[in-house]
Design a protein around this nucleic acid. Structure first.
Lengths: 119, 119
DNA sequence: CTAAAATATGATTAGTTGCTCATGTATTCA
DNA sequence: TGAATACATGAGCAACTAATCATATTTTAG
């Protein structure tokens, strides 16, 4: 949580508040990493894929039919989601089944939904 | 959570799995709305602003100094964050103080951090 | 009233993104 | 082996985004 030490010689209007803020400020690399995690959930298609896969695994074609998208669009998104460890794949013959890789993702997704309903 | 009724005459490879997925699939508008929430946290600068404001309010200039950004860049982000109800502002003379508008946002932010550390 | 300080905002731009289209790869079946 | 099925992928494009630069607005001090 704490960042590198700061010189408060810079003229802050409120040095005390700035010091408090600084002690909680996340550093750049951490912020970038965390931003990538949220960015993974910052797209309607990916959110719908997460919700579809939240209780059952599905193959690419069925996901495409379900969401009303082309197979290509879904496959591109799944590749991205796999690189981000959101989903994992399992091959069965010529069919590839996708499932959530991690409960945490579904948890974040659910927290987000709760946040929506609570306002 | 449940979406509109689906015709399963479409040839799903696995109709049972598809029906299960459909019952959990979020609809388009909800997904779009939720995506906007996550998108608000999908930027390193906004995440750092949230962390800075997590325990204290700060004025625009001090936020800019703290993050090492221009006043303009910070002001633009704060305007966006205000429109998304992430932060609220309070004017005191010619200084405008910003604070988190909602505990839920800090909660989501924290959940995300936990997710990072847990892998 | 005027200058200065603090913040807000419009225009522009480089970078990113999500989809489509065409094509490539892998696997099964006749 | 060859056709068909399921999925993956590269190129290209339109839409979006976050920063910069210049300028406008608001408020205080003199």
């Amino acid at each position: 949580m704490a960042t590198h030490r700061l010189r408060f010689t810079a003229d802050f209007l409120d040095p005390r508040a700035a010091a408090t803020a600084a002690s909680h400020l996340v550093d750049g690399p951490t912020a970038t990493h965390l931003a990538r995690t949220f960015a993974a959930l910052a797209d309607p298609t990916r959110l719908r894929l997460v919700s579809a896969l939240s209780h059952v695994e599905l193959c690419v074609g069925d996901l495409a039919t379900l969401l009303g998208l082309t197979q290509s669009a879904v496959s591109h998104q799944l590749r991205l989601m796999r690189s981000l460890r959101l989903v994992k794949s399992r091959r069965a013959g010529r069919v590839v089944y996708y499932a959530l890789d991690d409960d945490h993702i579904h948890d974040l997704f659910h927290r987000g939904l709760e946040h929506l309903q609570h306002q």
